[in-house]
Design a protein around this nucleic acid. Structure first.
Lengths: 213, 213
DNA sequence: CATTGTGAACTCATTCACAGCG
DNA sequence: CGCTGTGAATGAGTTCACAATG
């Protein structure tokens, strides 16, 4: 049974990746999959797949492999994505607007229920998804009213910390930070950073140092 | 002097983060910074900062700290962002369009020089940034013509692998993959994945298992 | 004398190798 | 017999602790 040892964060990330590949396998008509095949699709070691799953239970059949549909259900439960989640976006520029309309979110049970900005020219404007852009000052009340559980920050770097502070004040303790800076939050708050330029920098480092470009 | 031991990938990521904070420190008028202060701003251990920098040289002054301006220049050189880079985007949906207009890229020397799609309704349309959307069939010739060094994939998951294959065929061996799937590439090709839904999944996992939501 | 630079200790993650089992 | 599940071995990355030094 699921041992509650300390589980590596990388394991959680991989579970999500396994899930994506299981969806594709199901679509392609597979009913069972071995750790070897799943590992290859995700570009990891087969033992890694088995160990990752082993943290949470025994989901396979020895000599056969894993049931493609059942394993999806198990991973959804582990990741707590067997339910819907409400999020809000603060900073409705190019990126914020794109995320508002991003189809992958609702498809996976993540619903954007509010959009905020501090620009008077934007406040009140309708979004393509049918929301109206609200004043950031309304954040606290909207959180209660709409049950917002996750906050997206898509502002410039200079505004990110103050938006994070507002989210925390409003009792939103899970933040996805798309701004190119690090925000500082109390221990009770979870943050995932998605910083495009950091990813580009690592790519150029490798281009230069590994491929000699 | 810079030892060419194996350098952890996490070190490279952190160098990029240090650089962001150094920019802000310079803006705030700081001339010197200690590893302790920089570490706090980046939410890491001070010894980590010193060790990361130590892989590449001795940039500090004992008893004093690091020169804010000089250290930026050193990190830029290490990350190979002391020059400009050309990239192209394939898949001009919401996200692709937002990235086309994303101000952070040109501000850091990353220039989007071409946009591609396979949708006849989009091909030929002008983008806000002044480019015209091109047919994906033109990728190879555009790569030569425009010196495209990095490829962004912002297509749906189902198209990601075939776009990756095209990039590689066209000799673009650095890819930023924004699609919610893993692409498989030869060793000569570098890939950075930016998968929003994986980040959301890790957040919901932690919300559920650590905060009990 | 405050702070860097770094070998050594430690912690965490991955991979191996094989026992266990359908 | 083949593939999972897992303890043990290995490897990688982080933190400590202190000598070196401007």
């Amino acid at each position: 049974m699921g041992k509650s040892n300390r589980i590596p964060k990388a394991t959680i990330t991989r579970l999500s990746i396994y899930y994506r590949q299981l969806e594709l396998l199901e679509f392609d008509g597979y009913r069972m999959v071995s750790s070897e095949k799943l590992a290859w699709l995700c570009q990891v070691n087969p033992a890694q797949v088995r160990k990752d799953l082993g943290y949470f239970g025994e989901f396979g059949v020895r000599g056969v492999g894993y049931d493609v549909i059942d394993l999806q259900a198990q991973i959804k439960k582990i990741l707590a994505v067997n339910r819907e989640w409400n999020f809000a976006i603060v900073g409705i520029g190019n990126l914020g607007s794109a995320l508002l309309e991003h189809q992958n979110f609702p498809a996976r049970g993540f619903n954007c229920v509010a959009a905020f900005d501090n620009d008077p020219l934007k406040i009140g404007k309708p979004t393509a998804a049918g929301l109206s852009i609200r004043d950031i000052e309304e954040l606290e009340e909207a959180v209660k009213e709409l049950n917002i559980e996750i906050g997206f920050i898509t502002t410039p770097a200079t505004a990110a910390q103050s938006v994070a502070d507002r989210f925390i004040m409003a009792n939103v303790n899970a933040i996805v930070n798309f701004s190119p800076t690090r925000i500082i939050v109390p221990d009770c708050c979870l943050v995932e950073n998605i910083d495009f330029t950091v990813k580009l920098d690592t790519l150029t480092y490798e281009l230069h140092h590994e491929l000699g470009i």
